[in-house]
Amino acid sequence: MKLRQLEIALEDAKPFQEPKIQLEQYVTTPHLAACLLHTAETQFGDICGKNVCDLGCGCGILSIGSSLLGANHCLGIDIDEDALEIFQSNCEAYELNNVVECIQADIARFSPSRNMILAKRFDTVLMNPPFGTKSNKGIDMEFLHAASILASHAVYSLHKSSTRAHIVKKANDFGMQAQVVAEMRYNLESSYKFHKKKSKDIEVDFIRFTITTG
């Protein structure tokens, strides 16, 4: 599937009805999702035939895209039941050929000693984590940590470019090597009332992490 076709296909996924500020529920745009998934598949072969975990899956755009690109199994994880309800109806509307599931869980609760999911069960972990800029500072690192536990091969994620050095170092601590695949602009439209301007571009790094330790 071509990049543009994927992006158009993903435009049918419904976004959050009432995004929750405390969870930083920014929608992953069809454009960003398509770029991330298309690169993961065409450059690295990390989607088709794989089992994929979508951390902080929200409304499901990355899970749907993975499934469209041939991921045999995809598990979405989110803390928010309202988001999971949209996730479910979105995925079901696409009549996907591959198995997609979701569970409600708190990704910040992952730790190597006490997991809710056994380690290294997924080929690929995908996420567009909260940036951790509001009251939940450090949540992006909790997501990265969880991803490093769950993935046996690769992790794809979006992070603020301004935090790159920190991300690369932390990834190393978690047994992963970071490679910035692309620098992108994340257009956070006026999702929330506190955004004074109509839309606000944030510079984000699209990063691929490879697992370096078992």
């Binding site: 803390i79 039941e81 999971l84 479910q88 569970i103 409600q104 708190d106 809710m116």
Partner: peptide, 9 residues
């Protein structure tokens, strides 16, 4: 419920 396990503690 509705096919979704709730693992929240």
């Amino acid at each position: 419920a509705n096919g979704i396990p709730n693992m929240l503690l």
